[in-house]
């Protein structure tokens, strides 16, 4: 469900490189990207192509060496640490390949973590986190710790955590990479559902063509530049 209007975020001529002196590795060399509210995009590319770097820049974990990044119309280069953290907390939800759940916390505490940094009270956090766990089908696992959950369940907890703060953008870095095909498909279906029902913009990094083929927008990254792929013949895979 793509809504027209001003882009939610926009990258202009973004460069990023690592190292210094003679061994500079140019990862991104002039990336332009516009993403609108409700977009569901897959970013594909071989390993080392800069997918993760791009995601870290979009997710405000990293800053481009050159170029502009506007998020919700805000020039992100001018933000200090506190403002960046606040914007990240409010606008972005991360899902990682390796889940990154804190082993000492229960499922609901993991889900509620973004709200802790929003300054909400414990009772409110618990209420919202439990609600999100129900949405992802884990209402009865709220008090379990990560080691008591299967891989698919852990990723669903992570997705609940990414969504609990009602962010505009969901950034998923290989969300199905550590899961078997069926479980991975369940996770993708959950992401499509969230996109459909709540209008959450989703950027999914993947090297799995099967996963990418389901996404309405597919972007190829090659030699540090982006290349938009044509929509697949069936007109997009939302809801597959």
């Amino acid at each position: 469900m793509t809504v027209s209007g001003p882009p939610l975020f926009e990258l202009e001529d973004v460069h990023q490189s690592y190292g210094s002196g003679p061994v500079v590795l140019n990862v991104l060399e002039g990336v332009d990207l516009q993403v609108c509210r409700g977009d569901f995009a897959a970013i594909m590319g071989p390993s080392g192509s800069g997918k993760s770097t791009l995601m870290n820049i979009i997710g405000l974990l990293d800053r481009p060496a050159r170029g502009r990044y506007l998020l919700k119309g805000v020039e992100t280069a001018s933000l200090d640490d506190g403002e960046t953290a606040a914007l990240r907390n409010e606008a972005i939800g991360f899902v990682f390949q390796s889940f990154h759940l804190l082993p000492r916390l229960t499922a609901w505490q993991n889900v509620g973590l973004p709200l802790v940094y929003r300054g909400l009270g414990r009772a409110e956090i618990r209420r919202r986190a439990t609600g999100l766990l129900e949405t992802v089908g884990l209402g009865d696992r709220a008090a379990h710790r990560p080691h008591e959950l299967s891989g698919g369940q852990r990723q669903r907890v992570a997705i609940a955590r990414a969504l609990v703060g009602e962010p505009e953008i969901l950034l998923a870095d290989e969300p199905t990479g550590a899961l078997d095909t069926d479980t991975g498909q369940e996770i993708m279906n959950l992401l499509f559902r969230m996109n459909e029902e709540q209008g959450t913009t989703a950027i999914v990094i993947t090297h799995d063509h099967g996963v990418a083929a389901q996404c309405p927008r597919r972007i190829q990254i090659r030699n540090g530049r982006l290349q938009e792929r044509d929509p697949p013949p069936n007109g997009g895979g939302a809801g597959l």
Binding site: L61, G82, A85, A86, R88, H100, L102, L113, Y117, G165
Partner: peptide
């Protein structure tokens, strides 16, 4: 992870 979900350096 805490930084990713919105913790400041100060947090």
């Amino acid at each position: 992870l805490r930084r990713a979900v919105g913790a400041r350096r100060a947090d």
